[in-house]
Computed example of a mutant assay.
Amino acid sequence: MVNIPGPSRFVRYLGELRAFIAIIVALFCLSAALGYVIPGMYPELVDALLSGLQDKADQLTGQQPLLMMLGIFWNNALASLLALIFGLVAGLFPLFFVMANGLAIGIVLEMVVAKMGAVGGILLFLAGILPHGVLELPAVLISAAIGLKLGYLALLSLIKRQDVVTGELMAGLMVFVFWIVPMLFVAAFIETFITSALLGSV
């Protein structure tokens, strides 16, 4: 029988995950701040990150809105799932995943501010991030935090020679399926049909 995590269980699970969430959020904020200041210092790194973002954007551009929404959802869900599962490898993948996303956001913010000025750039950036980001960003960061915890428990299992991972992996996957996936689906809908319209009006 599948043990579906209801709202109270989900909140309790986040409480149990709070130390790992704190690490992931701190790393994300640090990476975003670093991304904001490095464009002039390491332009080749900026080009590499933006090239990856552009490739993903090109794959979605020109598609019907519904297909675009499903593409955004699939990309985010797959990346979040990989961050969760590959966290078993010492928790390294979720750390790199969060760093890359933080750097990209910081770089984009710097470019928008440089082009439009502080006030206009920040407003445009928030208009393009906040509507869907209030769901997408927590979902992505929680997935990475689960992956980081799994990596920690995997190392602990090796030291203790006792399986302390399987139960946590199943709990994390249940949270992913019943909470993270719906959050990412709604975020993809908002990004496609609301964020795009808001950016167009701005």
Rank of each mutant, 00 (worst) to 15 (best):
V37G: 01
V25S: 02
I38S: 03
G35I: 03
Y36N: 05
I38D: 03
A19I: 11
V11H: 05
A33F: 07
I21Q: 10
I23D: 00
A26C: 11
E16Q: 14
L17G: 06
R12K: 12
G15R: 09
I38F: 10
V37N: 07
I23K: 06
E16Y: 05
A22C: 12
V25N: 08
A26Q: 03
G35N: 04
L34V: 08
C29K: 06
L30A: 15
A22R: 11
A26P: 07
L17V: 08
F28C: 00
Y36V: 08
V11I: 15
G15W: 13
G15C: 05
I23Y: 11
G40E: 13
I21F: 03
R12M: 09
A26I: 13
L34E: 00
L30M: 09
A22D: 10
V25Y: 10
Y13D: 15
A22V: 14
L14P: 02
I24N: 02
Y36P: 06
L34S: 12
G40V: 10
A33N: 02
L17N: 00
L34M: 12
I24T: 13
L30H: 02
A26H: 04
G35P: 09
C29D: 01
F20G: 04
Y13N: 11
L34R: 07
R18W: 15
Y36Q: 05
I38V: 15
E16W: 10
L34D: 02
G35Y: 02
I24K: 00
I23R: 03
L17A: 06
G40W: 12
A33C: 00
R12Y: 09
G35S: 08
A26E: 03
A33Y: 00
A19W: 14
I24F: 01
L17E: 09
L14Y: 09
V25T: 12
R18V: 13
V25R: 05
L34A: 14
A22H: 09
L27Q: 07
S31I: 02
I24G: 07
V11F: 13
A32E: 04
I21W: 06
Y13R: 12
